[in-house]
């Protein structure tokens, strides 16, 4: 059953606060107990929204959110504000955990039921609270070829396998792999050209030995 496009407005517990306020992950890394509730305030909506998309039911999503928060708590010391925003960093940890859970749960994530309009970015980008790296990612995504966009939407939405995307789109498997990889790499390079995903010393993570 297709998911409805997101139409609800952020509330106090919602995700709108994810992009605002002073940095909190350094306080989390320092073990500040006062940061617990603030961390939930800031990222609860973000993590919950992602969990609801990846998990089959609310109960599973609640379990996932708890696991993700523990991951965030234990990974906070790795956060580097010069590389990415807190929101993107937390979203990365969340996606990693949810993809892992989806594979563990069913070994086969459900086929995507993504309506095209749910993937259309114009209404969702440009919000004042959107972090800069997310805004740049949205712009970079628009520069991709249509086929790359189609494949990446399906891959990113629920962590669908290349095989599932090939079945959904009718593209050959090798073509799907190429579009997914090249599309994502191209976005990264555009972000790097804008000074993102590069640490303060100018290093590009993973390429320092090239």
């Amino acid at each position: 059953m297709p998911q409805d496009p997101p139409t609800s407005h952020p509330s106090d517990d919602g995700p709108s606060r994810a992009q605002s306020g002073p940095p909190i992950l350094p306080r989390v890394a320092a073990g500040d107990p006062e940061a617990i509730n603030e961390c939930y305030d800031r990222f609860g909506g973000l993590i919950w929204s992602l969990a609801r998309r990846f998990c089959h039911n609310p109960s599973d999503a609640e379990d996932a959110v708890q696991e993700v928060f523990i991951d965030v708590w234990k990974s906070a010391d790795r956060f580097d504000a010069s590389i990415a925003s807190e929101t993107t960093f937390v979203a990365m940890i969340t996606r990693r955990r949810l993809i892992d859970r989806a594979r563990r749960r069913s070994r086969r994530p459900p086929m995507p039921t993504l309506p095209e309009q749910a993937a259309a970015p114009p209404e969702s980008i440009g919000d004042a609270e959107m972090s800069e790296d997310v805004r740049l990612a949205a712009e970079a995504f628009e520069k991709l070829r249509p086929e790359q966009k189609q494949v990446l939407r399906l891959a990113i939405h629920q962590g669908c396998s290349h095989e599932q995307i090939a079945t959904t789109t009718g593209m050959p498997l090798g073509t799907v792999k190429t579009h997914a990889r090249r599309g994502l790499i191209k976005i990264r390079e555009i972000l790097r050209a804008q000074g993102k995903l590069i640490d303060e010393a100018g290093n590009r993570p993973g390429e320092d030995e090239a």
Partner: peptide, 27 residues
């Protein structure tokens, strides 16, 4: 190297902005 995972996360947030509110008991 987490740069591509960060890229995927940023694209995710851009394409599918989080808009759901967590249930009351989860906090």
């Amino acid at each position: 190297d987490e740069s591509l995972e960060l890229t995927a996360a940023a694209v995710d947030l851009a394409l599918f902005p989080p808009r759901e509110t967590p249930p009351a008991g989860l906090r």
